[in-house]
Design a binder for these strands. Structure first.
Length: 203
DNA sequence: CTACGGATTTTCT
DNA sequence: GAAAATCCGTAGT
């Protein structure tokens, strides 16, 4: 399977977020490949986007990686407990990113099940299967993504995105989640998801 | 099914 | 000191 290269990410988040749908996020750890198909992503457009951490050119140690080049991981902690995984887009100095909100487990299912519920995959209830990776915090816990991966190069061989099958699906655009504080930006339709996928966090 | 509050810590004011 | 790009358990309908 082909790994997405630097130029894929060197475009506006609005484009990259939509094109990431259906692609496969892979984390190689402890000699295993944990992978999941991306089914939901949000675009954060940087300086002019009131919902973005880099709004107005804000530049702190947390957001620093967003100011670097495209194709790197931006991982941060929200609500003191959960990690969110983003991919930095656009060239250095243009601090955009795409938040990966949800995915469908593909590979390393038993490890993913252990990471979330301390069970093997076939011990999971139906609702537990659905809740493996249907949200940004859950996805990070399932794939063992934490702040140690902040700044990781996605054009490497540890954490990367593969071009998935060339399947067809409907892309739905809707409001981003959890950004009610963002005044006018909270209504932008900058969240994209695969229409009929059961792992989407909010329909 | 929906509604609510607590967890927990980094970050910024 | 408050809020945060969230999740989960509990209680009520």
């Amino acid at each position: 399977m082909k790994t997405l290269g630097r130029e894929f990410y060197n475009r506006d988040s609005l484009i990259v977020a939509q094109e990431l749908l259906g692609k496969v996020l892979v984390h190689e750890i402890n000699g295993q490949k944990l992978s999941a198909k991306i089914v939901e992503a949000e675009a954060y457009m940087g300086i002019t986007d009131r919902a973005a951490h880099s709004f107005g050119g804000r530049r702190t140690s947390r957001v620093e990686v967003m100011y670097g080049g495209p194709g790197f991981a931006y991982v941060f902690l929200v609500y003191g407990m959960y990690h969110c995984f983003n991919i930095v887009t656009r060239e250095a100095g243009n601090p955009q990113a795409v938040l990966i909100r949800a995915a469908e487990p593909i590979g390393g299912l038993d490890s993913i099940a252990q990471n979330r519920f301390k069970k093997t995959y076939d011990q999971l209830s139906k609702s537990q299967i659905k809740n493996l990776t249907n949200g940004p915090g859950k996805l990070c816990r399932a794939l063992l993504i934490d702040k140690s991966l902040n700044g990781e190069d996605l054009c490497g061989n540890k954490l990367y995105v593969e071009a998935g099958e060339n399947e067809k699906f409907d892309i739905v655009a809707s409001k981003r989640v959890g950004v009610d504080y963002a005044e006018e930006a909270r209504n932008y339709l900058w969240r994209f998801y695969i229409g009929d996928n059961e792992y989407v966090s909010v329909k």
